[in-house]
């Protein structure tokens, strides 16, 4: 398999996630789309740990750290969402505009 196939898969998944972030109004779904984008980036890292001039296992180490950070991000994101839902009684991202100037 050429490395371009894996990179193309990552690009497709990233685009799907980006479209979700831009169009979804529900904040939970925006978090889902961000997870999909992070996974697309991870595919690229792992692909370059197998293919390339200096391919080695360091790409997998990077992906391990990315997965850890993404897990922390998801937990904090859901917690912020709960706090917002308790105060505003909605998860609609359009209505979180109290910091608008």
């Amino acid at each position: 398999m050429p490395v371009t196939s894996y990179l193309a898969l990552g690009a497709v998944l990233f685009s799907i996630g980006l479209y979700g972030v831009l169009t979804k109004r529900n904040a939970v779904l925006v978090l889902f789309s961000i997870e999909l984008m992070l996974n697309a980036a991870n595919i690229n890292l792992v692909a370059f740990s197998k293919y390339g001039l200096y391919a080695n296992q360091t790409g997998q180490v990077f992906t391990l750290f990315t997965i850890t950070i993404a897990a922390a991000e998801a937990a904090v994101g859901i917690a912020i969402l709960f706090a917002l839902y308790r105060n505003r009684n909605t998860t609609n991202a359009d209505e979180f505009d109290s910091m608008k100037g």
Binding site: N26, V28, L31, A71, A74, L81, F82, N89, T91
Partner: peptide, 14 residues
């Protein structure tokens, strides 16, 4: 993360 997201959905109203 899927279970966390399920909790996020169940504890908020849609």
């Amino acid at each position: 993360i899927s279970i966390l997201m399920l909790f996020g959905i169940m504890l908020t109203k849609h």
